[in-house]
Simulated scan of single mutants.
Amino acid sequence: MGSQEPVLVNTIENGVRVLRFNRPKKYNAFNNDMYSSFMKALLEAEVDPQTVITVITGTGEYFSSGNDLGNFMKAEENESSSGSDEADPDTDEGQIALVRKRGVNRFEKLINILIEFPKPLIAVVNGPAVGVGVTMLPLVDVVYASDKATFHTPFVKSALSPEGCSSYLFPRIMGPGKAAEMLLFNKKITAADAYECGFVTEVYPHKSLHKVWPKIHEWAKLPPNSLHGAKALLSSHKKEYLKHVNHQECDQLARTLTTGEFTAAVMEFFNKKSKL
Rank of each mutant, 00 (worst) to 15 (best):
G175A: 02
A180F: 06
Y168N: 06
P154A: 10
A220H: 06
V55K: 06
P176Y: 01
A264D: 06
P214S: 15
C197Y: 15
S36A: 11
F151V: 01
P162D: 08
T91D: 05
L114E: 03
P138V: 13
E77V: 12
F107K: 07
P223I: 10
A41W: 09
L160C: 12
Q4K: 13
P154N: 08
L98H: 11
K239P: 01
N71K: 06
P89H: 04
E76G: 04
N112P: 01
V52Y: 12
V16G: 09
S161N: 09
V140A: 02
V143G: 03
L184H: 04
L19K: 05
N67A: 10
H217N: 10
E218W: 07
V203D: 09
G229K: 14
N31E: 11
E79G: 00
N186V: 02
E44P: 00
Y62T: 08
L19F: 13
L234D: 06
S236P: 00
V16F: 08
T190Y: 12
H210W: 14
S84G: 00
A29G: 15
L43M: 15
F151R: 02
H210A: 13
R102Q: 13
D68M: 09
K221M: 13
K207W: 07
H152L: 03
H237R: 08
T135C: 14
T153L: 09
L227R: 12
A194I: 12
R20L: 01
A191H: 07
I216F: 11
K273F: 09
K119P: 03
A220Y: 11
N225D: 07
S37W: 06
E240P: 00
